[in-house]
């Protein structure tokens, strides 16, 4: 278990955090390779069932990152999403998912440093939570 590395699914908004991830690359900032990024047009696009699905597939962590309030490319998608995520995160935690597995951030396309910092922090805390135990659908039975 000592060399266990978590797999984390990151849902990044195309207009900001995905750009920040790109810019972190341009600036050659380094962070561990634990993320698999799924690009979405807006955090408003993220259906809670995607996050459940990620957990069901055994993701050790989920990270959602979008635009700062007021900066949404679609005016207010992130503000609706903020409400959804608040309730989703609380309910997941209430029903026994470790808080350390779920991460949300606002990162603009210019904030490469913040992206790399948060990336490292997310990986660190997911590692603390250890390998995912719950909500995983046994692969053989996946419909």
């Amino acid at each position: 278990m000592s060399n266990w590395e978590p797999k984390i699914i990151a849902f990044l908004c195309n207009w900001c955090s995905y750009g920040a991830a790109d810019l972190a690359g341009v600036s050659r900032m380094q962070y561990p390779p634990n993320f698999r990024v799924i690009r979405v047009p807006c955090t408003g696009r993220i259906n809670p069932k995607f996050i459940l699905s990620a957990l069901r597939h055994g993701a050790d962590g989920v990270w959602v990152s979008g635009c700062h309030p007021g900066d949404c490319h679609y005016i207010e998608g992130n503000l609706y999403a903020r409400r959804k995520f608040a309730l989703l995160k609380n309910l997941l935690e209430h029903t026994g998912i470790e808080p350390k597995r779920l991460h949300f951030s606002w990162i603009s396309s210019a904030e490469a440093t913040k992206f790399a910092d948060v990336a490292r922090e997310v990986i660190r805390t997911v590692k603390e939570a250890g390998p995912a135990q719950h909500f995983i659908k046994k692969q053989a039975e996946v419909a």
Binding site: L79, Y80, R82, R83, A86, K89, S105, E121
Partner: peptide, 16 residues
């Protein structure tokens, strides 16, 4: 309903 609506200053302490 609550999810069809937002306020600019909704709580967001859980967001980094």
């Amino acid at each position: 309903p609550a999810l069809d609506f937002y306020r600019p200053d909704d709580p967001q302490a859980f967001i980094k």
